[in-house]
Each structure stands twice: as C-alpha cells, then as structure tokens.
Amino acid sequence: MNRGLTLFVGILATFTLAWAGLVLIPYLQFGRVTDYVSEETGQTLPPPMSGLAQRGHEVYAAEGCVYCHSQQVRGESQGSDLARGWGVRRTVARDYIGERPHFLGTMRTGPDLSNIGRRQSSVEWHHKHLYRPQSVSPGSVMPPFRFLYSLRKIVGEPSADALKLDGLDAPPPGWEVVPTPDAKALVAYLLSLDRSYPLPEAPTE
C-alpha cells in the first residue's frame, strides 16, 4: 500500500459504510416516528412534557444525573429490570421522541428512573431526597443537592413551599428551607417520568 489514493479511498469507504449503517439507516427507519394517539383513551403518547418539566430536564442535564441513573427498561431477556419494578414493559424508540438530549444512560450507580414519577409520586419525598438522599434512602451514595435549596429567615407567614425537615436536616428555629426554581423544575421533571402507557410496539399486558 504505497499509494496515498488507495489508502484514502479505503479509509473513506469503510467509514461511509459504517455511517450509513449506524446513522443514516436508523435515522430513516426510526428517527422520524411520531407520537401515537391511543384508540382506547384518546391520549397522545408519549404525553408531551410540561414547560416546568422541560426546565427540569435542563437541570437534570446540568447536574449530570445521567452519569448514575439510566432511563431505559430492558426486555425480559436482558436483565431483571421488569422484575425489579423499574417498568411494566421495555422502553422503545417512541418513548423518547420529545427528549433532547436523550438520557438513556450507561450506568446504574443509582436505580433506573424511566418510571420514577410513577414509582415515587410524592413531591415531598423528592424534595427531601434531593436535599439529603440518606434521610429517605439510608445507605445511598447519592450526593446531596442542597445548593438547589435556600435557607432563609421566616418573615411573617412561613412559606407554603418550605420543606418539612426533621432531625439532622431541620433548619434552626425561625428559619426555613425552600426549593429554588431549579429544584421545583427538577422535581416536576422527575414526576413526569412515567413510561407505563401501552404502545402498539410495546404492549403492557
């Protein structure tokens, strides 16, 4: 191989082949699937994300949640995701059409979050958990996100949003811990994560 041209053509050809196979064809084949309107309930699936949840999606990206939490449920032949209750069916391409960037993830230092809004639907739990994960999940190695909350002096009426903290986390008397807009958006996003609706290519029964 002493000819630069042969080398160049070969390098170009192998690369283009892989690009066509792993990028172009997938894009044409399932990169343009649209949402699905359920005949039974008339719902649009997957349900569109609310504005606040969309903002929470950005917080999820900025804080790097994706490095420890996946958002994909594998089928019965690959792992015990279904038996663990992380979903009622495997997730499919259509589940993610509204997400930019995708948060499929590759690591489960923490549990899968595909259906966390369904599995843990309490706003209060999520705030307590973000403030200090070990307060509700003893032994967790998740870092606290206290910087998403502000400690402030109660002036007049206590805030309706204030976290109900006790024990170690309780603020000094006369003070309260309130979530920042980022924390509220993140919790709204987490609560929106529910991929348990049936799709034609992924039935739930």
Partner: peptide
C-alpha cells in the same frame, strides 16, 4: 406485575 411496578419502590420486592 402491578406490585413491582407500583408498590415495590417503598414496600420492596
């Protein structure tokens, strides 16, 4: 199936 999907996150498998 219903249990693992909805209840097990608190009451455990």
């Amino acid at each position: 199936r219903v249990y693992v999907a909805n209840c097990a996150s608190c009451h455990q498998v």
